[in-house]
């Protein structure tokens, strides 16, 4: 059991910053979930496994001598292609079937990819190199590891880049239009099907980034993203499952709060962090299903 630390502001600051770093990872994956939910109206349960798979792809490339950043970029391209392919091949045929069918399909994908990763790469845990130097900088008395700063920067940088893409480009506008009203966009000449596929592609890219950022600390193993996925779910639900801003805020909030609870509340400790996130998830779902930033959906009968 983790002993509660004697309270000092520096220690508190360290807990907050490392919480922000893991929160940025949750935010990326949560944003991936929201991207798909906005366009396809389904939660992709295989999102975490897709991320795990791409992280293994990155590991393989580095294992064969490629240096970190080229492998990183190549992995993102592969993830994008993979995401688009999954939408085209698996999701498109069931687009108009009930929600439960699509959920079951993504669970099938979850099982298959999880098995595939264990089968191709082996079940043993692998180390994954970090691109950031293993040292700390001291900022206002709080020592922050460069690893955490880098993780935070890469994740949030991607989110901002994606936001700019959606705001400033015609393609981004078309994708937002499809999320807002697919029928009207189709009448305006937007290729709705391809926009959905692009959404899956971008979601896979976000997942890949989350995977590669998480891997140095959680290590590579076939189930590495399962816990991250639950945190990302909690983050997306907390922020509102249809709100991109909510996903990012929710992710950071979950990262910090869980880290602080784990450090300072004796009962929670290391082991009960995940059940705490579950409790957050359940409470939000029951009390305010639309989350902090989500649209309140009124069901008409």
């Amino acid at each position: 059991m983790a002993l509660p630390l004697a309270f000092t502001w520096t220690e508190f600051g360290q807990q907050v910053t490392s919480g922000l770093a893991s929160g940025a990872i949750y935010a990326s994956l949560a944003l991936a979930l929201v991207l798909i939910y906005q366009t396809t109206n389904v939660v992709n349960f295989a999102q975490g496994e897709m991320a795990t798979f791409t992280t293994y792809v990155a590991w393989t490339m580095m294992h064969h001598g490629l240096s970190y950043w080229p492998a990183f970029v190549l992995t993102l391209l592969i993830a994008f292609g993979g995401g688009v392919t999954v939408e085209r091949v698996l999701i498109r045929p069931v687009e108009h079937r009930p929600e439960i069918v699509i959920v079951i399909l993504t669970i099938g994908l979850f099982i298959a990819i999880n098995g595939l990763v264990g089968w191709v790469f082996g079940p043993e845990v692998k180390a994954f190199d970090s691109p950031f130097p293993n040292r700390s900088v001291v900022l206002g008395g709080v020592s922050i590891s460069v690893q955490d700063i880098g993780t935070f920067g890469v994740c949030l940088g991607t989110v901002v880049a994606l936001w700019l893409f959606f705001r400033l480009t015609t393609l981004g506008l078309a994708m937002r239009a499809v999320a807002f009203n697919p029928d009207a966009s189709r009448l305006m000449g937007v290729r709705v099907g391809w926009m959905l596929a692009l959404g899956w592609g971008f979601a896979a890219v976000l997942g890949a980034i989350a995977g590669m950022m998480a891997a140095p600390t959680v290590f590579l193993d076939p189930d590495m993203m399962l816990v991250v996925l639950i945190y990302a779910f909690a983050a997306a639900v907390l922020g509102g499952i249809d709100s991109p801003v909510g996903a990012v805020v929710g992710g950071l909030l979950i990262g910090v709060v869980i880290n602080l609870l784990g450090a300072y509340v004796n009962f929670v400790g290391q082991e009960l962090r995940l059940p705490t996130a579950l409790a957050v998830l359940l409470i939000v779902l029951v009390i305010r299903p639309s989350g902090l930033f989500g649209r309140v959906v009124v069901r008409k009968v």
């Binding site: 698996l90 079951i104 099938g108 994908l109 298959a112 098995g115 089968w119």
Partner: peptide
């Protein structure tokens, strides 16, 4: 040994589709 889940997942997806 890990081939089992792959077959499982693929079978599930094929059945759904």
């Amino acid at each position: 040994k890990q081939a089992g889940p792959v077959v499982f997942g693929v079978t599930l997806m094929l059945i759904v589709l």
